[in-house]
């Protein structure tokens, strides 16, 4: 029996898909893959790429941290923010990366952690884009 995947943020429900074969998520302890019949699990997520495999098709999403719950083949992602690969704006992500890098270079200790987190987020966004491009940018387009 395939998985049901839901990606929810505080502001909207990004996705609900019922025929998912595998979900690969950026867990806070490292990437983890979830297949059908997974044991009940609650884990926190780091900023990173979430891959959704359905048949031969792979969709990439960016999540900027949050939680993931698996329970009886239902996978729920509670994300702080989430975007489909096609929603990511390359120029904005690159600009954010540069801004975060500059801030990190001149950050005091207090700001350091925040700048680092911002840098990680922008790098992960760019990584999602890179993977998407390498695959030929296929897949479903998301309408906003």
């Amino acid at each position: 029996m395939p998985l049901t995947l839901e990606i929810i943020t505080g502001e909207r429900r990004l996705l609900r898909q019922e025929d998912v074969d595998e979900v690969v998520a950026p867990g806070s302890l490292g990437e983890l893959g979830i297949l059908p019949n997974h044991a009940p699990l609650i884990t926190s997520l780091a900023a990173g790429e979430l891959r959704v495999k359905t048949g031969n098709d792979v969709e990439e999403y960016f999540v900027s941290g949050g939680f993931l719950e698996v329970h009886s083949d239902e996978v729920t992602v509670l994300a702080d923010a989430a975007e489909h690969g096609s929603e990511i704006d390359a120029e904005r992500a690159e600009a954010a990366r540069q801004r975060a890098q500059e801030r990190l270079d001149q950050a005091s200790d207090a700001d350091r952690a925040r700048a680092q987190a911002a840098l990680a987020r922008s790098l992960q966004r760019l990584r999602v884009l890179e993977h998407r491009r390498r695959r030929g940018g296929g897949g479903r387009e998301m309408s906003r």
Binding site: G27, P40, I42
Partner: peptide, 20 residues
């Protein structure tokens, strides 16, 4: 009925979750 696995640990997930 269900025993969840918590990663990294219940306490750490709780610490992440409460501010949110």
């Amino acid at each position: 009925e269900t025993q969840y696995i918590f990663e990294p640990s219940p306490q750490e997930v709780l610490a992440d979750l409460l501010p949110r």
